[in-house]
Design a protein around this nucleic acid. Structure first.
Length: 110
DNA sequence: ATTGTGACGTTGC
DNA sequence: TGCAACGCCACAA
C-alpha cells in the first residue's frame, strides 16, 4: 500500500460484481484526484501482468467503455459487464447513478 | 538520478 | 455536443 499503483489495484478489487467505478473515482480514492489517466494505464498493464483484478469494472466518467484503439478488449469488457447484469443504452453507456460503486468504510491505517 | 513522453480521463469553455 | 488544455503516474532512454 505504499504506492499509487498498489492502492489502485486494491481499490479495483473492492468493486463487487454488478458494480462499476470510474477511472477518476479510483484515482481520487487512491489519493490522486487528477490521475485518472494513470489508472487507465495501470488497468492496461494489469492484463499484461496477469493481475487478478476486475479491470473490466472500471469505466469512464460518462458511463461508457474507453478502449482507445483496442476494440477487441472493449467488446470483451462490455460482455463481462453485461454478464454481471449491467445494461448499456443505445449510446453505449450504462447508468452510473444506478451501478456506480461507492466505498463504504475504507481506512488506510498505515 | 533526471528528463521526456504517452495514456482505457476529466473538466471547462 | 465537441474540442482543447490540464495534470498525474509509470516507463523508457
Amino acid at each position: 500500500m505504499e504506492n499509487f499503483a498498489d492502492r489502485t489495484y486494491w481499490l479495483v478489487c473492492q468493486v463487487p460484481d454488478g458494480r462499476v467505478a470510474t477511472y477518476g473515482q479510483i484515482a481520487t480514492y487512491a489519493g490522486s484526484p487528477r490521475a485518472a489517466r494513470a489508472v487507465g494505464n495501470l488497468m492496461r498493464r494489469s492484463l499484461k501482468n496477469d493481475r487478478d483484478i476486475p479491470w473490466h469494472r472500471i469505466i469512464n466518467a460518462r458511463g461508457a467503455i474507453s478502449s482507445k484503439g483496442d476494440t477487441a478488449r472493449a467488446e470483451l469488457q462490455r460482455r463481462l459487464l453485461e454478464s454481471e447484469g449491467l445494461v448499456f443504452d443505445d449510446s453505449g453507456r450504462c447508468d452510473l447513478d444506478q451501478h456506480r460503486w461507492e466505498p463504504r468504510e475504507i481506512f488506510w491505517h498505515d
